[in-house]
Design a protein around this nucleic acid. Sequence first.
DNA 1: TTTAGGG
DNA 2: CCCTAAA
Length: 619
Amino acid sequence: MVFKRKLDCVSVAFDYPNIPKAPRSCRRKVQNKRTDDDDDAKMCAMDLLASLAGKILEEGQSSSASSNAFEGNTHENFGKEIKTEREDHDKPLKSESSDQGNSVSMPTYENTSDKCAVNSFSFPDNDGILERTPMSDHKKIHGETGDVHVNPGFEQGEATGGLTTNTCNLEDKTALDVQFPKPVCVDDGDLKSPSFVNMTPNGSLARHGNRTNLGRDDDEKLYSYRKCSNKFTSYKSPAIRRIRKSKYWKQVSKDFGHYRADVGIKALYRKRKSCYGYNTWKHETIYKRRRSPDRSSVVTSDGGLCNGSVSKLPQKRDSVKLSIKSFRIPELFIEVPKTATVGSLKRTVMEAVSVLLSGGIRVGVLVHGKKVRDDKRTLSQTGISSEENLNNLGFTLEPGGTSKVPIPLCSKDPVVPTTELASLCERSAAASPTLDSGVPHADDVFNSGNVVDNNLELVPYQSEVSVDEPSSDSRALVPLPALEEVKALAIVPLNQKPKRTELAQRRARRPFSVTEVEALVQAVEELGTGRWRDVKLRAFENADHRTYVDLKDKWKTLVHTASISPQQRRGEPVPQELLDRVLKAYGYWSQHQGKHQARGAPKDPDMNRGRALESGVSV
DNA sequence: TTTAGGG
DNA sequence: CCCTAAA
């Protein structure tokens, strides 16, 4: 029955808030230019990693083991890696190609080179303790408080050890995850605690003010939150978001490729111009939690930002230990011939990383989102010793030495190209802080600010998941290309006209979860159907893989879905309740062609009362 | 860059 | 999801 009344009746049924649509110019006004800050330095992954690790070690010198672990493992592995490659150097190359299975029969691919994006480097926890923390545990621990915490990394089994490059499906230009041995030791202790402790209050999933905040980094989150709170007028600069968002391969290569002739690598720093992804490194946010007066444990969540995930360690009296599990680096775009060997690929990646990080980095400390610039102050003086602050302590990685990054914001994410798993989401919080499914799924996580960050950062690509176990992996594969080969790779012209396949590459399909649909519906109810950008900002701001076009398209399909019989629907069923809302909103907005000017009172969930039709229209 | 629609 | 004309 509800259906019967669809559009026509529906529209009359509810009272949508009239939210004025601010002129674009105005909306833009608020945009910030933080992206500019990201341009600065270029740093090199290795240095960066080393620096951070070193820094951390310094701070937590107490654990010699840690340092050993880091230096030893890391280097050792590197050496091993290389060595191995050389040994295998003469082996046949072909068999190694990622597409082994069908190497022989792949006529479809015309391109000779394939590209892979490397989005992160992680330091797997040697023990895998943290990483292995079952999601359920997280939930258990935080669920009661309403916190939603999802660390895709866990689910993805990030805890792989050793220096390994996850398999890259060359054919598909899959993103890669590169992991390094975990540098810092784990002191056992709170093993049970979730590695990511920075839980946001219950409200994390809730909508803040007019919008849902999906921010992944605290700073950023706060930033956007405040802005939004002020009204709808302020949005985070879309540019920023966009930058983070991964673009389609083709676009990336087309517009942002940064070709390194010397390396044969194209470093794509996020698509948009000014930002080039360095921001990714910029901030590492670490959250600490104090366990007890004198034994506090530090927990970190990799801020989405910087991506590194840090594990918390039991804190000894006066010292603080941190374990950094992973770093995500700006997306790197690599193109190599299909005939290249895995080894050559590794080298290429290494080169790219080295180049990328050549600038060095600095570590910044944030307390409650504010950067502490005075290096001479003690932690106590800075207030870091207080329990509350430990929860709000963060670290940032900034481009080397000089540039001062004004904003501590955490920019985070390098964003990943799409991943099915990656989908993060946002949700209109208010609706349900509780995740639909028992286990938090990336898709279910919405705006839980910090948490989200992690998600985004960690989001692994399905394809990459897996693979590698430290040792085994390192030797596994194949021969390595000689250096010459590497050079050859370098020569591969990236600009040759993009291969068709390349261009044709399309984003992975990522069905909207019910949660996302709910968020979308909610946003449309409030904003109407002609303001996709706003919808995006409000409900999916941090879901980088959902563009406003995607939302618009989804809405289109939702309307269609709602119009057909349940039997004709496919895919994950959308609750009828939502479909009903879709039709209502559709009908309503169809008749109120966006000319609403009323008070922006947030729409009432139960919009069936009034005859908005008349009243609303009259305005 | 966004919006709006067709593909 | 993609592609694009318009705005």
